[in-house]
Simulated scan of single mutants.
Amino acid sequence: MTVSTASQSQAQQQSESGIYHLIQVIAPPLLRVTLGIVFLWLGITKFFDPSPVRGALEGSYAFLASDTIVYILGGLEILTALLLFIGIGLRFVGVLILLFFVGTLSIFFIESASMYSDVGFPALNITGEFFIKDVSLAGVALMIIAQDMTRQAMKRGR
């Protein structure tokens, strides 16, 4: 009985080890691709209807509130997505993503009154929820930068 239990335990550990190894292998590219999908989606939508972004800019950075600026942002987001998909210049792409999010989150703080529901802090309305999600996406960008730096260091060490 003890031998059987020990071998079952060992088999379970090997199985878990295999699953965790698989996760380690697929997580970095999956992280890049999923963030790329988000950026592709956000970039494309700016070309269909620039008014929501223009409206957010009007309340915070009025000098940037034009369709042209929104289209430029959309184009940069699409380019960012493509670079994430391809996996080129990831640490620089990560910094660009952080700059996007710093810009977006600064609007959250400048226009914070329009981000909360009728209840007030901490209840956000849909606009506030859209902006606050960038906190987690900024964390994803930091992870992509860190992964790329580790990958580059390993290449140099070979």
Rank of each mutant, 00 (worst) to 15 (best):
F48V: 00
T34G: 06
K46W: 01
F48Q: 06
D49L: 00
I26G: 02
L64Y: 11
S60V: 14
P52M: 04
K46D: 00
Q14S: 06
V53D: 06
L57I: 01
V53Y: 10
L30A: 04
F63W: 13
Q13E: 14
F39W: 14
Q8P: 03
I72E: 02
F39A: 00
P50W: 05
G55K: 06
T5C: 05
G55Y: 07
L64G: 06
S9E: 14
A27L: 04
L40K: 09
D67P: 04
Y61H: 05
S51H: 12
I26S: 06
Q12F: 13
Q10D: 14
S51D: 14
R32F: 11
Y61M: 08
L42P: 10
F48C: 05
I26R: 00
S60A: 15
P28L: 06
G43Q: 05
F47H: 11
F39Y: 10
Q8D: 13
T68V: 09
S9R: 13
D67V: 04
V33N: 09
P28I: 02
L42E: 15
A65C: 11
Q12S: 11
G18L: 09
V25T: 05
L73P: 03
F47Y: 08
T68F: 01
T34R: 03
A62K: 07
Q24I: 06
L40W: 15
Y71I: 00
R32D: 09
V33A: 14
L30E: 10
Y20N: 08
D67I: 03
S66C: 10
I69F: 13
E58F: 14
I19L: 09
P52S: 09
I69C: 03
E16N: 05
I26D: 06
E58I: 03
P50I: 04
S66F: 02
I19E: 04
Y61N: 07
L35R: 10
A62F: 13
L35C: 11
T34I: 12
F47E: 03
A11C: 11
S9C: 11
P52I: 12
Q14Y: 11
V38I: 07
